[in-house]
């Protein structure tokens, strides 16, 4: 059964690019354009196997999204990857501290993305 991945980024461009890589990798992809929408989707019953989120987003940023997601019992254990740029070391550490599983450095190619996902998603 194909695993579902929720991709959260306010840049339509990044969403499109990541989504495409994931689809090529055989995943089912859902997308949200900010943290709030993502959280609402989770609350509405979406049950992804993995969430990949940007950090800097309007309405609700990635860090807040991670915290809010971890507060939902059914997403206590879901792997979450944050997408950051090379320079955002502090952000990555903060996200990791607050419940992210790992990170992806943007821009990311399909192969690298797949190998990162395999690392955090058992059975992928």
């Amino acid at each position: 059964m194909a695993k579902t991945i929720l991709v959260v980024d306010d840049s339509a461009l990044i969403r499109t690019s990541v989504t495409q890589h994931l689809k090529n990798g055989g995943f089912t992809v859902e997308t949200a354009d900010d943290g709030l929408n993502a959280l609402n989707m989770l609350k509405a019953g979406l049950k992804p196997d993995l969430m990949i989120t940007d950090i800097n987003m309007p309405n609700m940023n990635g860090i807040e999204l991670i915290q809010s997601t971890r507060a939902l019992p059914e997403f206590r254990f879901m792997p979450i990857l944050v997408m950051t740029t090379e320079s955002q070391q502090t952000m990555r550490d903060e996200a990791k501290q607050l419940g992210a599983t790992g990170w992806v450095v943007k821009p990311v190619g399909g192969e690298l993305l797949m190998s990162i996902i395999k690392k955090v998603l058992p059975g992928a």
Binding site: T16, S17, Q20, E30, A32, N40, M41, G109
Partner: peptide, 30 residues
């Protein structure tokens, strides 16, 4: 070199329309 790869991958995306749908089907539309 990395962005190049991504870009090439993106160009492939456009030629393949059948993938275009699902993204728009998200729970909360834009």
């Amino acid at each position: 070199a990395a962005p190049m790869q991504v870009r090439n991958a993106l160009i492939d995306v456009e030629s393949d329309n059948k993938f275009g749908r699902r993204v728009e089907d998200s729970y909360v539309g834009p």
